[in-house]
């Protein structure tokens, strides 16, 4: 038995377990951020009773749903009803594997990381659809169908805008993409069209406002989650925020240099200090984009389902094709 293979396997298992465990605190932090930021934008105080300045409110919410009764509707399809939250949550959590948090600080550095990411992310639509179908509830069904239509439509401009980055950097590995940005500057400067497309499409892909039609409170009670209670609802709830974190992280990695500082990375920083320095920049940028998403949620009303489709197919798709075309020409012409 090759010892290095065993070591690699052990490292992979360890890192995966660690990351999966880390998703829960990540969700707590993002939820807490959302509770507090929305409250302050609405001229409220927000949670301030649990822990110092109410910092543990989201944790309390999380443990509360754990202790709730778990109901299954009488005529629901029990097997798929139980499976759906896991599919959604795993789809969100598994894609965390390929995110490079800091130099060398990545669970699995695939050479096809980008492909893996989008493949895994696409799974969540199956989970939502299954949840909507199996609940035996019309609101759930409508929500599930909405999610299918929305996420399948928006995956196309989303992926096409990433192809521009891939052409530019010549690699499907996230660490290679970051390395390229270290040499040539952040991708956002070379992808001025690709970045907004990716931003809009990713917001729609993770069902955040103003594209939160899937669980539109005022229309279809809670969409696919209507019949879920207790921890199963908790998984959907967490998955939404984990997905928000991951999308912001991927956005940062693809367009804003990941863990790179805005100025040239000091080469002498290595080892532990380097990791900390990278983590600092990575989280700062990621949470900035999470903040932007929360800001949008506070400000914007929801768009309608036909407008949603119109934006995807009539605006974003042509624009992303143009972006791809221009990038390809530029890559060939300037030998970037």
């Amino acid at each position: 038995m090759d010892f290095s293979l065993l070591l690699g396997l052990g490292r992979f298992v360890l890192a995966t377990t660690l990351l999966l465990l880390l998703t829960i605190p990540t969700a707590f932090v993002v939820i807490q951020l959302e509770l507090k930021v929305i409250a302050l934008m609405q001229l409220r105080l927000g949670p301030n009773r649990v822990g110092p300045r109410g910092l543990f409110q989201s944790t309390i919410h999380g443990f509360k749903v754990l202790a709730k009764e778990d109901t299954v509707p009488d005529q629901a399809d029990r097997a798929t009803f139980t499976l759906a939250p896991w599919m959604v949550y795993m789809a969100a959590a598994m894609s965390m594997l390929v995110i490079p948090f800091a130099p060398g600080f990545v669970a699995a550095d695939f050479n096809i990381g980008v492909v893996y990411f989008f493949a895994i992310l696409g799974l969540s639509v199956v989970g939502l659809l299954v949840a909507g179908w199996s609940s035996y509830n019309k609101y759930s069904l409508l929500g599930g169908l909405r999610s299918a239509a929305q996420m399948v439509s928006y995956e196309i401009p989303l992926t096409l805008s990433v192809v521009g980055v891939v052409l530019l950097t010549g690699s499907l590995s996230f660490s290679q993409i970051i390395a390229h940005q270290l040499a040539h500057g952040w991708n956002v400067w070379w992808q001025l069209l690709g970045f907004p497309i990716f931003f809009i499409a990713s917001t729609a892909e993770i069902n955040r406002a103003p594209f939160d039609l899937v669980e539109a409170d005022s229309e279809i009670v809670a969409g696919p989650f209507t019949e879920y209670s207790g921890m199963r609802f908790g998984f959907f709830f967490f998955a939404e925020y984990v997905a928000l974190f991951i999308m912001s992280a991927i956005l940062v990695t693809l367009f804003f240099g990941g863990y790179l500082a805005p100025w040239p990375f000091p080469a002498q920083l290595g080892g532990f200090i380097g990791i900390l320095y990278g983590l600092l920049w990575f989280f700062a940028k990621t949470y900035f984009f999470i903040f932007v998403a929360i800001w949008m949620r506070t400000t914007l009303p929801r768009i309608r389902v036909d407008q949603l489709m119109g934006v995807a197919w009539k605006v974003l798709l042509p624009l992303s094709l143009i972006n791809l075309f221009l990038t390809a020409i530029a890559v060939v012409a300037f030998k970037l």
Binding site: M41, Q42, D212, D217, S218, R297, T298, T299, L300
Partner: peptide, 11 residues
């Protein structure tokens, strides 16, 4: 609020 805007109702 019915159109998904959270803030105007509070104002």
């Amino acid at each position: 609020l019915d159109m998904g805007g959270l803030t105007p109702i509070l104002y």
